[in-house]
Design a protein around this nucleic acid. Structure first.
Length: 270
DNA sequence: GGGCTCCTGGAT
DNA sequence: ATCCAGGAGCCC
């Protein structure tokens, strides 16, 4: 589910609601979501306050009092939703964090997401976070060109690889390659510097637009207040297989690359 | 690198 | 009944 713009939106919507809040009690419906384990997670987190929220790639990082941190990875269908007042719980609510004001729910239809409690000082040594490549916003044209030059893998696979560049997922890779006019199967090392520069520019542009539109809600995604995003209305290729290309009118194609459904225009993307 | 796996549910 | 889904860890 959430890619960089969605996690950023979750962070922005939850921050004002959670900062300073005390976690009074945690009710666990599905303990396998918790690392290093249910008991240890509760021991580390219960009784702490939210101090700040950060984002790294597609990871949300909650900094708590007492030098504690919680890393949230939503995978495909995870949601963190703040509620205040008694409404019926959403289906697939697996965790409830009772706060001194309101409640934070972790909801996850497919149960792939994970929440990990650890000492904040250990964040820098975390095996997944440590391996993340640079964020698009932190890259310049030369560095990005250098990253692509190192591999003959298809652009689609390269951009999805969080160790190469962090934050992009299936939607934003397909949308970026379309706007850049690049075929998803093009090997990275074949790109010229101008092509790489253009690709990086459209990636930054699309991510910024998607953030300002509150992310893309294709099916499940909602922000920290349960609101859907609006950027899906601006998708030009993702989820539009068989429809006419918005640029040239030719039928949009669909194929599998790196085991992921891939949408593109066979005429516009070379 | 590419397959399989973890899950539930919607579309066809 | 079958395929597909905003992800990525683990296995050759």
């Amino acid at each position: 589910m959430p890619e960089l713009p969605e996690v950023e939106t979750i962070k922005r919507t939850l921050s004002p609601l959670l900062k300073g809040r005390l976690i009074k009690e945690i009710k666990v419906g599905l303990g396998k979501l918790l690392l290093p384990g249910e008991k240890e997670f509760i021991a580390r987190v219960a009784g702490r306050r939210f101090l700040d929220l950060k984002r790294k790639g597609k990871y949300l990082i909650c900094l708590l009092s007492g030098g504690t941190a919680v890393i949230v990875h939503f995978r495909l269908t995870g949601q963190l939703i703040y509620v205040n007042g008694q409404k019926p719980l959403p289906p697939h609510t697996h965790l409830r964090f009772f706060l001194d004001r309101g409640e934070l729910l972790y909801v996850d239809l497919r149960q792939f997401g994970r929440l990990e409690a650890l000492a904040a000082k250990d964040l820098k040594d975390h095996p997944q976070l440590k391996e993340l490549g640079p964020e698009p916003f932190a890259l310049n044209e030369r560095d990005f060109y250098g990253l692509l030059q190192k591999s003959s893998r298809p652009l689609k696979a390269l951009l999805l690889d969080q160790k190469v560049i962090s934050g992009l997922g299936n939607i934003y890779v397909d949308e970026s390659l379309f706007r850049a006019g690049l075929h998803p199967k093009r090997p990275g090392k074949e790109l010229s510097l101008p092509e790489a520069s253009r690709l990086l520019a459209v990636i930054k542009e699309i991510l910024a637009e998607a953030i300002s539109d509150g992310g893309s809600s294709v099916r499940n995604y909602v922000d920290g207040q349960g609101q859907r995003g609006r950027f899906q209305e601006k998708h030009r290729v993702y989820g539009r297989r068989g429809k006419p290309c918005p640029r040239c009118g030719q039928t949009l194609a669909y194929t599998k690359i790196a085991q992921r459904g891939t949408h593109f225009c066979p005429a516009c993307q070379k």
